[in-house]
Design a protein around this nucleic acid. Structure first.
Lengths: 204, 204
DNA sequence: GGGTATCTACCGACAGGTCGGTAGGCAACG
DNA sequence: CGTTGCCTACCGACCTGTCGGTAGATACCC
C-alpha cells in the first residue's frame, strides 16, 4: 500500500532498492552494482530479472506513477465540492502523500530535470489529464466568484513548485535553515503554511 | 555582464561550455570529452587549464554564484523601501534574471538535488545571508501591518520553489502545457502571474 | 631558448551487458 | 525409490566501451 515498503520476492527487493538508488542519485548516478549490492546479489543476477538497467528504471517509474495515481484518485474520489474546503482537502492529501513518499518526489525531480533524454516516461503527458481537470475546476470556481481570479495554469505551476521543492531539496533546506526540515513538526508546519498561503491568495 | 555570454580566452570558453554542459546534464552526466568537444579542443588540453573535472565544476559554480550575487546586490542596492512596491521590485528583478539565465537555474537545481556529495558548494550556506535579510524584512513589514501575516521562512521557500521550478523544468512544462514555456510572451505571463499571486497573498 | 598551449598515446578503474556454468526444486517415468 | 529432464536463481569471468587523469612530443610566440 505505502510506496516506500518492504520486499517479498527478489524482484520486489530489486524494485525497492532501485527506487531508493535512483531517487538518491538519479539514473546516471546509479550503477547496477549499487542496486545489486543493496539487494545482496551480484550484478549478473539483477539482469536475470530485468534485461537492462533501462528496464529496471522504467519499471520503477511505472510503479511510482501508478502509486501516485492511486493517491490522487482516492483524494478526488468523492463528489466534486465547491470553494476552498474542497481544494484544501485535495491539496492537503497530496502534500501529505508527498511528505510520506520523498523518494517519489526525488524521482520525479530527477526525471523532469533529465530533460532531453526521455528515460522513464513523459511525466508531463502522464500528469496532463489531472492538470487539465484541475484547471477546469479552478476556472469554474473563479467564474462563480468563489475564488479570486488568477490564471489557473500559472496557479497550479506555482503550487507544484512550492510543494515539490520542499521535499526534493531537503539537503539544501537543511543547510539553509540550520535544522531538519523533515521532522514531523516541520512537515506539519510546512503543510499549514502551504494551505494558509493558498487560501490567502484564493479566498475573495 | 550577462552570465550566458561569449568567450575571449580558452579558459573562458571552457567555463562557458562547462556551465552549459553541467546545467544540461549535471555533474555526473557531463564528461570531459563533452566539454572539450564543445570548446573545440582535446580532453587533455582541458586539464592543462583546470587540473581536474572537479576544479572546472567548482570554478563554474563560483562564477555562477557571484553573478547571481551581483544581480541581488543590484536589486537591493537602493534604499530599503516599504510595502508591496519594494518587494515587487526585488521579486521582479530576480525572476527576470532567472529567465535570462536558465543555465544558472538548472545548475542550482542539479546541485541542490545532488544532495549528500557536496560537489560545488554549500548552496544553502551561500544563500543564507540573503535569506535571513529577507526574513527580517518580511517580519518588519508584517509587524507594521503592511503585509498579511505569514511565516516569512515558509513564504520564501514557497516563492523559491514557484519561481525556480518554472525555469528548471522547462521540458516537463513543455510537455505538460503543449507549448514552449520560454517564449518572450510566456515568460512575461509567468512573471505577471508570480507577481499577482504574491500580491494577492501578501496585501492586506 | 624558455614558456605556453595544444596534441597523441596511454593508463587503470569502472560502466553495462553477455556467457557458460552450477545448485536446488520439482514433476514424470521406469 | 532412483533417475532423468527441465526450470529458476544465482554466480564468476569476461567483453567492449568510456571515464578521469598522466606523460611526453610538438608547435608556436615573446
Amino acid at each position: 500500500m505505502a510506496i516506500e515498503g518492504e520486499a517479498s520476492s527478489t524482484r520486489e527487493a530489486i524494485l525497492v532498492e532501485a527506487r531508493h538508488c535512483f531517487a538518491q542519485n538519479g539514473y546516471q548516478g546509479t550503477s547496477l552494482n549499487d542496486i545489486a549490492a543493496g539487494v545482496g546479489i551480484r550484478r549478473a543476477s539483477l539482469l536475470h530479472h530485468f534485461h537492462s538497467k533501462d528496464a529496471i528504471y522504467q519499471a520503477v517509474c511505472r510503479r511510482a506513477l501508478s502509486d501516485w495515481a492511486d493517491c490522487i484518485d482516492e483524494a478526488v474520489s468523492g463528489p466534486v465540492g465547491e470553494g476552498w474546503n474542497y481544494v484544501d482537502q485535495v491539496l492537503t492529501a497530496a502534500v501529505r502523500w508527498f511528505a510520506q513518499n520523498p523518494e517519489f518526489v526525488r524521482l520525479v525531480r530527477h526525471e523532469s530535470l533529465a530533460a532531453g533524454d526521455h528515460l522513464g516516461f513523459d511525466l508531463g503527458m502522464a500528469i496532463r489529464p489531472w492538470f487539465e481537470r484541475a484547471v477546469n475546476h479552478f476556472d469554474r470556481e473563479m467564474g462563480a466568484g468563489r475564488f479570486r481570479k488568477h490564471d489557473p495554469e500559472q496557479l497550479l505551476i506555482s503550487g507544484y513548485g512550492a510543494v515539490l521543492n520542499y521535499f526534493s531539496d531537503v539537503h539544501f533546506l537543511e543547510s539553509l535553515l540550520g535544522r531538519d526540515p523533515m521532522t514531523e513538526d516541520a512537515i506539519e508546519a510546512r503543510i499549514e503554511a502551504i494551505r494558509e498561503f493558498f487560501r490567502a491568495a484564493l479566498e475573495p
